[in-house]
Design a protein around this nucleic acid. Structure first.
Lengths: 191, 191
DNA sequence: ACCATTCGTTCACTATAACGAACGAATCCT
DNA sequence: AGGATTCGTTCGTTATAGTGAACGAATGGT
């Protein structure tokens, strides 16, 4: 890469986005730059410049930060906004004939993770906030639970679908019955 | 970061994984290192070392490569889900404590559809072949069925996950018990 | 056979990412 | 108030990511 090329890319969205992301996640955890510096083994100077969007971090630097923040490396490279909560109650199964029902469609540019979440009765689990723009889908395979964003959680039963923003604090909680839940996480990718 | 720290991380999985990923995607496109160097504006030397897993690229370098390969930046940092058919049998639920299990990860650039498929007993349904590159995921919420590509279908029970290429002919078939299946269809974004 | 390309690698050099140290501004104690 | 921390920033220095040139090996044309 030539020097001019590098300059032209200096204000590159990738580096700036990563910087913003680092700052956001750090503050989310009530962590100071100094403390993050201690945990990562990086210098305060480096973090300061990165968060200012001025830097061009190496993959090792980003990895160290991701580890210290307990998030996947890729979460530092994703961005943007989040939708509202959608609750689709289970529909009655028809007695005869197979049914095919479209629950939800999300348009392009997403990465995808499928998780299985098993909760015994009377259990509460906090969800790890994901990258901004991440949408989380809960499909209740069996049981009951209360789940969703901290400020808008819903009671769910077998067959229900709940979609909500995965970048805000959220939690799953069972009461008298255990729950078996499939979680589909769709994250927008930076291209 | 101190010098010893850096050395210790030299064989870091993050850098090595990125290197492997770069090589894989480049070859997939029948592109030589030299040509990728031209398109990215990077030197051949840099690419050679990165693919060898020896490097520690900056975010700008990775971004340039991602752009040249027309893939989201995050794809360079992600292990791709294996392309073939994958069958993940249900795991036993632990008696105590919640379990969180990553079933599958698919890198960016996908649109997403969630379907619910309900099959009465003794029913057979042909799946519509989707666009090339589409991956279909079956999550068995309850019951049993035999499903998958026409030439490689598998018996599935409650809790199983089956992933297979959705662009080939495939079918779902129940025997003595009905089945309730969540289908996640990931299609590569157009463009 | 020969020369011309193109490939991926290695090496010395240059540009720069990350560092350590010092700074002023806030905040919290006596 | 005064001293002690802790914060985030800025500075000069050091370690290293990326460069350009040269290399041997492989391929293609004449």
């Amino acid at each position: 890469m030539t020097a001019p090329d590098r300059e032209r890319r200096a204000a590159s969205s990738a580096a700036a986005a990563a910087g913003a992301q680092i700052q956001r996640r750090r503050r989310q955890r009530g962590m100071s730059q100094a403390e993050l510096a201690r945990r990562t083994g990086l210098s305060k100077a480096t973090l300061s410049q990165l968060e200012a969007g001025a830097g061009n971090p190496t993959i090792d630097t980003l990895d160290a930060i991701a580890v210290a923040l307990s998030i996947p490396l890729t979460d530092l490279l994703t961005r943007d906004a989040s939708p509202g909560t959608v609750h689709l109650p289970a529909t009655a199964a028809s007695d005869e004939g197979p049914t095919r029902e479209l629950l939800r469609r999300i348009s392009g540019g997403h990465s995808l993770e499928l998780w299985r979440l098993r909760l015994p009765a009377h259990t509460s689990v906090d969800g790890v906030p994901h990258a901004p723009g991440t949408v989380e889908h809960l499909l209740v395979a069996s049981g009951r639970l209360v789940a969703g964003p901290a400020d808008d959680s819903r009671p769910l039963k077998t067959g229900d679908l709940l979609a909500f923003a995965g970048d805000a604090p959220h939690a799953y909680r069972t009461e008298d019955v255990p729950a078996d839940v499939t979680v589909v996480i769709a994250s927008p990718a930076v291209g």
